[in-house]
Amino acid sequence: MADPKIRIENLYKVFGPNPERAIGLVRDGISKQDLLDEHGHVLGVRNISLDMPGQSIQVVMGLSGSGKSTLIRHINRLIEPTAGSVIVDGQNVLEMSNKELRDFRRNRASMVFQSFALMPHRTVVQNIAYGLTIQGLDDDEIKRRVARWIERIELAGYEDHYPGHLSGGMQQRVGIGRALATDADILLMDEAFSALDPLIRYDMQSVLLDLQAELKKTIMFITHDLDEALRIGDSIAILRDGEIVQQGDPQSIVLHPVDDYVADFVKDINRGKVIKVGTIMRPPTDEAEGPAVDADTLLEDVARLMANERSGWARVIEASGQVVGVVSTADVMASMVRRANNGGAAKVAQ
């Protein structure tokens, strides 16, 4: 496999008066709470290694205090790590001079913030142009590029409004426009949609997925919302107390949680929207009839098709038309509901 676009290696961050001393304790495995109570240092992240392939969305998920916002700020070095390295396109971000770092931030990695962090004294147009102004482009070029993004993120008519006059969803559109306008191929999104209400949030996720289908950026997306993570992540890393507890694609996290912490996270999600039919199919049999679907179809869609056709089976086919597997109604139902624990089974039996 080619080198990853971004490689994070053995990253540690300890906040406090003397992180160099405290990091020894962290390496020896002191708990986050003990580090705080007994040594007065706060653990940010502990021994994080993560490879991000280019042109995909890496979601980092965790509850507040899990270190996810700290982690994302290491990639553009808004936070200096205590130990470890962050390598982008083969170059260690932590060894860059101030000037190299500024160029990196101007041209190669841009960021979207939870609280939008727009400049209140600049209009929508001026905000989107911010990164380009910093790059020092001439006015005509800036105007041309900004006009394109205004169109693309549907802010036409609001060019001369100030951010304070816009709704949250619109403000974050501006935030996204500002980040995309620089043409950086890395996009860092720190809980970008967490401050929005659910409907708008869903909307913005669609905006992001549409843009991504077209632009193919390398995106790190931080969230505390599992539904959001499963919807947009090509790959998900779950963080707890500064450590990665599990990483993998959405399906594997739902199907094989490594521990109770992750299992607890995934217990209430709609599995039909995550699990793909290819994962649960059984070998083809000749007598199976029913709708043909490809292996990446979500169970929910398979179930809908089978219900429409009143069919007990569905066939999974390859692009060539060859049947590679089949699933029954019972298979689909069993996979869509959570595997019951003993208590649940007993209740059914009574």
Binding site: N76, L78, L101, R102, D103, F104, R105, R106, N107, S110, M111, F113, S115, A117, L118, M119, P120, H121, Y130, G131, T133, I134, Q135, R178, T182, L188
Partner: peptide
């Protein structure tokens, strides 16, 4: 001046002078 707005200026690679003139003084 709002720390988050300053962080955004940093994240887009503003130099200390650009930060001062473009963000801190106007705000």
């Amino acid at each position: 001046v709002d720390k988050e707005v300053l962080e955004a200026a940093d994240a887009f690679g503003a130099s200390p002078w650009q930060r001062l003139v473009g963000v801190q003084v106007p705000l």
